[in-house]
């Protein structure tokens, strides 16, 4: 089948402003959208830039806005599109070239929530024990591949006035450590998260959950962080 793709283009080395370019590629219905983008680059226009790596939704490189919805180009099959497909870079982030955006601020925010296990008790010679139930509490959160689709889709992040909000991806990782029974820094973490640019930045708009390529219940997890902060305050 013939697929038509209308793609956002911008190269600061030569373009004064952005424009859209339409390409047509021959594709099998079971091909990935990523295959179409590669075919364009390899056969028609090598100047088109986008990131990719694993090609099957594990590395998180090829997040982009597809017909207005953020997702991974390697997870979308051609057969699910009928008309022309509109492809744009992830919103929220600065466009570096075509579909490549600057994820520096995304990772800075991610880093700011202390994405690592904090413990004081010295570990034993073997593993720390954790029951399957305790593991299950955060198991969905470890599916996160940091593709940034959720943060890019969040209306709070999209709003200039609240752009300092760390965003759903960082909060998913915060949830993962806050609810890990091995972590011993829950007070420190809750102090950090109890802020309008962190847990309370979330306005429960569900966009993150709708787009997550790994089906993580993002909004619910942020809700659980809020609940835990609230309860800790009201118990104390």
């Amino acid at each position: 089948m013939l697929v038509k793709l209308k793609i956002f283009r911008f190269d600061p080395e030569k373009d004064e402003k952005l424009y859209y370019q339409t390409y047509e590629v021959e594709a099998d219905p079971m091909d990935r959208l990523l295959d179409c983008l590669n075919r364009i680059r390899w056969e028609q226009d090598p100047t088109l830039s986008f990131r990719m790596s694993c090609g099957h939704g594990v590395c998180g490189s090829d997040g982009m806005r597809i017909n207005g919805v953020c997702g991974l180009a390697c997870q979308k099959l051609v057969r699910s599109f009928k008309e022309e497909v509109l492809i744009e870079p992830l919103p929220v982030f600065k466009v570096v070239k075509d579909l490549v955006v600057d994820l520096g601020p995304f990772f800075e925010k991610y880093h700011s929530i202390k994405p690592y296990l904090i413990t004081q008790t010295p570990p034993s010679d073997t593993e720390r024990k954790q029951s399957p139930g305790e593991h299950e509490r955060f198991e969905e959160a470890i599916r996160c591949i940091l593709c940034a689709c959720c943060t890019a889709s969040c209306p709070v992040n999209q709003n200039k006035e609240t752009e300092n909000y760390v965003g759903p991806a960082a909060l998913v990782r915060a949830f993962r450590y806050l609810f890990d029974s091995r972590d011993e820094a829950s007070e420190e973490r809750m102090d950090l998260l109890d802020h309008k640019d962190r847990a309370w930045g979330c306005e429960t708009l569900w966009k993150c959950t709708e787009v997550c390529p790994k089906e993580i219940p993002v909004t619910q997890q942020i809700g659980q962080i809020k609940k835990r902060i609230y309860e800790a305050k009201h118990e104390g």
């Binding site: 690592y116 296990l117 570990p123 954790q130 029951s131 399957p132 993962r176 890990d180 091995r182």
Partner: peptide, 15 residues
């Protein structure tokens, strides 16, 4: 495990 890798667990809580 000590660094924080979330291994799946046995019913006794071991890796």
């Amino acid at each position: 495990e000590h660094m924080g890798v979330p291994f799946s667990r046995t019913p006794e809580g071991k890796i």
